[in-house]
Design a protein around this nucleic acid. Sequence first.
DNA 1: GCTGTATGGTTAATTAAATAACAGCGTGGC
DNA 2: GCCACGCTGTTATTTAATTAACCATACAGC
Lengths: 227, 227
Amino acid sequence: MAKKNRKTCDVPDATIHRLPLYLEKLKMLQAIGVEDVSSRQLAESLDIKASQLRHDFHYFGGFSRPGRPYQVTKLVPALEKIIGISVPQPTAIIGAGHLGQALANYQNLDLQGFPVKGIFDTNPKLIGLEMRGQPVQDMDDLEAVIQREGIKIAILTVPATQAQVVADRLVAAGVIGIFNFAPTDLKVPEGVAVRNERLAVGIMSLSFKVKCILQAQEGEDAQAEEL
Amino acid sequence: MAKKNRKTCDVPDATIHRLPLYLEKLKMLQAIGVEDVSSRQLAESLDIKASQLRHDFHYFGGFSRPGRPYQVTKLVPALEKIIGISVPQPTAIIGAGHLGQALANYQNLDLQGFPVKGIFDTNPKLIGLEMRGQPVQDMDDLEAVIQREGIKIAILTVPATQAQVVADRLVAAGVIGIFNFAPTDLKVPEGVAVRNERLAVGIMSLSFKVKCILQAQEGEDAQAEEL
DNA sequence: GCTGTATGGTTAATTAAATAACAGCGTGGC
DNA sequence: GCCACGCTGTTATTTAATTAACCATACAGC
């Protein structure tokens, strides 16, 4: 049994990152009443190859059988189970600065299976403020709330200087997944997953491509003048 | 010449995404007065292989020569030039909701070469509010500001329903790089770069790993009981 | 009932990325 | 002067991811 579990977890990162996209698109289809969808239809709407989609699904044994398209109403819960959000996954936000507030107010978090069960900060001016119906709490209560609510996933939006200290406390309190928005690499023990979300990487890689586009246009202009 | 430019742009995405990490770490080294750094040192601090780092640098012709380590003071501006931030890259934020506010107040944007030269929204309650020294402007002024400031990169933090309409306006006004935070795929003409930043993908892939860790622990516990 | 067409599962082939290996250079010690 | 060591640039190898090809099944039309 454990062997089977390990098998469904030995999946490439690239595939894992596509699962939320599949789920999102399928939920849309479900919302507009679509019952069946073929791998080709779903893949085309996501701008990927159908064979890749089927290959991804194959890691989990497949969700249909030859000759039959996928049934949206069965695929959605199947993916939710694989992703781990069949039951809501209580989440905490650490750091109620602008970014923390933005995430706390991002209602899709709740809708997508990650209800925010605690918002924390050290700033006395923020503590007590209500965000989405719940008050910002003092960091002193961090461990108590995490354990009471059974929180396994935390969103870290504190300054880089404090990120490691807070992460250590989170891990000690039982958190095993940290969504890190601080521009720092966290050191965590084995058995804890970290995902770093770096704004700088995103905008800089975009800048690189913009620079390339501009250079290409200049190149074309120069070429045009030469003629 | 155009050929050389094209060459420096024909680089794998995986490499492009590492350039900001290199730059960030090098700036840290520069700040504490480090002059030289070897590929091994730099790679180890980023938890990657030295051969990968040299391989990445090789796409751009290399930044040193055999026998000599990299000079931090030369590498930093070289990477900045490659990324396209030798001169500040004026940027606009479209959508002054919570996320837009968070990004507008994220001072690192300025420091890292992306000064915010315009913040826009349609909500009359937000227009005029000051954020980081500049007022939220009416969307009606979007095109004028983009052209006056020469903005090529825009950060899109509007609701998904409006994302495409706004993107079309941005492109028409001359923007060629869109950092899209709306959970929608944008259709843009060739010669425009889009980077989608999806919160949902990040937290769901984290959830997947958390689920796997929990299952592995249960497996171990079960195994322990069997003994 | 049969056939043509479309479907997903599965395996093979291709492509891309990460890693290792090597060649040539520079420096410091003796 | 020369040798040992460490360094980068470059190429080769290995590994991973993507794409294509194929097979067996299901269904619609006749």
